[in-house]
Nucleic acid binder design. Sequence first.
DNA 1: GTCTATAAGATGATAGAC
DNA 2: GTCTATCATCTTATAGAC
Lengths: 201, 201
Amino acid sequence: MSEMSNSTMEARPGKRDRLIASARTLIHEQGVHRTTLADVAARADVPLGNVYYYFKTKDELVGAVLESYTREAAALLEKFEHHRSPKARLKALVGNWNSMRDAIAEHGCPMGTLCSELDKSDGEAADDAAAVLAIIIDWAEDQFRQLGRRDARDLALSLFAGVQGAALLANTFRDPTILARQGRQLERWIDSIGSPRREGR
Amino acid sequence: MSEMSNSTMEARPGKRDRLIASARTLIHEQGVHRTTLADVAARADVPLGNVYYYFKTKDELVGAVLESYTREAAALLEKFEHHRSPKARLKALVGNWNSMRDAIAEHGCPMGTLCSELDKSDGEAADDAAAVLAIIIDWAEDQFRQLGRRDARDLALSLFAGVQGAALLANTFRDPTILARQGRQLERWIDSIGSPRREGR
DNA sequence: GTCTATAAGATGATAGAC
DNA sequence: GTCTATCATCTTATAGAC
């Protein structure tokens, strides 16, 4: 690469980054399948044939998109550390999806729908998709553990399932308020979590 | 149609029904996109060209699959009416997904993944997909209302979001126990639901 | 009603000039 | 490094014999 991986001086981002950003948007809106490389190239203002200089295959481009989600998720979680209590951090996590509720109602959770679609593909991309969700769930588990819960893993999975399920329903019914109301429910649930308690029943 | 829509006497189901059943299975396993009409025809033991006698387009076949899910959901809910209490009925609903946990871990919830995929398509099939989920949510809302809850709609959406989210995670991580454990959590939650309570907080 | 052969269109990928 | 032109493949859908 003769070009830094990101913008220099005044210019817009390099072609590689433009392609990834373009693919991210289009894949969120249309899914992997309906998004053609011609679409991605046009939106990034890069000639079609040139895409293959940066990504050997379409799968590799999808992989780069997944990597960008992983990086973004990690950055987001780090940002949440600024909150003082584990409960506040968990509520910030829920609030993040709530703040995207309109986009989610239109096209679903970018990561959730991608995981769902890639699991039906044949490539090994599904593993990378799982890794994105795992980062978030592991982090949530850690927060619940800080609250003294032995069943932290289950609680983390429940919380994230609640978010992802609400995203699916909000998208299916094209109704962002589903996400907002579920967000309130989850926040109340987080608030209600008490001191250590035996798991199992 | 010179043939009844289903089996007569000894023979296996008619071609139309075989095509729908074949499409159902393949779409669950591979998604709509990867499932070609050639696949569907081969599995149903029907020549490719003949598919178009029964379904004018692929979309129409997908529509028939959606319709079969709608019918199945309605039959399932009716079966649940045999349980005496609303709580038992709701737990039966959760138990239904739990009983399919291995298949769900492999390929996701048949209806949930289909809704997700169709929402990224352009056709109007997405509306039919939403109708399938709506039947179940409306039913659950009714159960919560029978429990005297004013916020029955929110509770129904929360419950179903919990199920669908867990299905997504079970599929993404290929781990059926996620669904089993979330099922237990949801059952406990149902049990804990008390008498009427002001919604909102 | 049933089936074979094939048309028509879309898209991932490559060759090779610049 | 960049881009145009094009190939190769796959898949929906149709034409038309039986």
